[in-house]
């Protein structure tokens, strides 16, 4: 098989490419449908047979999302909550990951297992007590009411990723830093952090995506329009009698953009960040 020379387009036909084609189709089609539908007029949305290409192309849905609904506010809310939570997760996660990966500590194993358990803990199990806590704190309908729980829920996974990444950095890097005369903080900042960047990006993207798309807590804790985040905002576009599909599609497209940009920029880091623990040990 290997030796058979194939020419022209024939050489692209092989098992791997065909599988890849179907995977892309499977994942890509809904995304395409989302984008295409967002540009359709409300009348054309329900056409049968469905329109594959929007005709006429309309941006009405977008203006509706931003003008007639408060999508702009939701977007800003999401951005504030997500960015701050991600930043907190990364700052705490990097330090914790470094400590767990590197420093001599008692009870490391127990701690790591506990973190793992927490990271798979279903949010819905704690939502009621958490609601009461936040209510008592007066944090319902506030940014911190989401930022703090988001940080708590995403931190364990981030610590795992970062700790594994730190393990892959040879300990000689720190020793050589010590010999060169760098103190512990300097070593972490100028030597370890730059080397751990792929791990940090990976953890960051996972955390960003999780916070950006979180629905349950956002719905429960921040019901006021002023503090709504995108997922809740989109869900509440409709009224009892109508579902404005076009507007929802348009808002969803805008909501996907930041994640798309992030993944596109950092894809190389993400891949190396996810695999590094496996090969370097």
């Amino acid at each position: 098989m290997r030796n058979r020379k194939r020419t022209g387009w024939h050489r692209y036909i092989n098992g791997i490419n065909i599988s890849a084609f179907f995977v892309v189709l499977f994942v890509g089609l809904p995304l395409y449908w989302l984008i295409a539908s967002s540009f359709k007029t409300p009348a054309n949305l329900g056409n049968s047979p469905p329109q594959f290409f929007p005709n006429p192309v309309s941006v009405g849905n977008y203006t509706d999302a931003f003008k007639n609904n408060d999508f702009g506010q939701y977007f800003i809310n999401s951005l504030i909550v997500t960015l701050i939570a991600t930043a907190l997760v990364l700052i705490l996660g990097t330090m914790a990951g470094y400590a767990l990966g590197r420093l001599p500590m008692r009870g490391k194993f127990t701690l790591m297992v506990t973190l793992l358990i927490i990271s798979v803990f279903p949010a819905i199990a704690v939502i009621a007590p958490l609601y009461l806590v936040l209510r008592n704190l007066g944090w319902l309908n506030s940014y911190q009411g989401l930022i703090i729980p988001y940080t708590a829920f995403n931190l364990p996974f981030a610590i795992w990723i970062l700790r594994n990444y730190m393990l892959g950095i040879p300990k000689e890097m720190e020793e050589t830093g010590r010999i060169d005369g760098a103190g512990p903080f300097r070593t972490l900042w100028t030597i370890i952090l730059p080397m751990a960047l792929p791990g940090i990006f990976t953890a960051g993207i996972f955390c960003f995506t999780a916070c950006w798309t979180e629905f349950l807590m956002a719905l429960t804790f921040n019901s006021a329009n002023q503090y709504r985040t995108i997922p809740v905002g989109i869900a509440e576009f409709g009224t009892v009698f109508t579902v404005p599909y076009g507007t929802i599609f348009a808002a969803s497209v805008v909501a996907v953009v930041p994640i798309g940009i992030l993944v596109f920029i950092f894809r190389k880091f993400v891949i190396s960040g996810l695999t590094s623990g496996a090969v370097k040990g």
Binding site: P170, E172, M173, E175, T176, I179, I191, P194, M195, L197
Partner: peptide, 14 residues
């Protein structure tokens, strides 16, 4: 005031 060369060099990759 010592300097050390490691087996894996431990160069700062960045």
């Amino acid at each position: 005031d010592i300097a050390m060369v490691f087996q894996n060099y431990a160069l700062y990759p960045h």
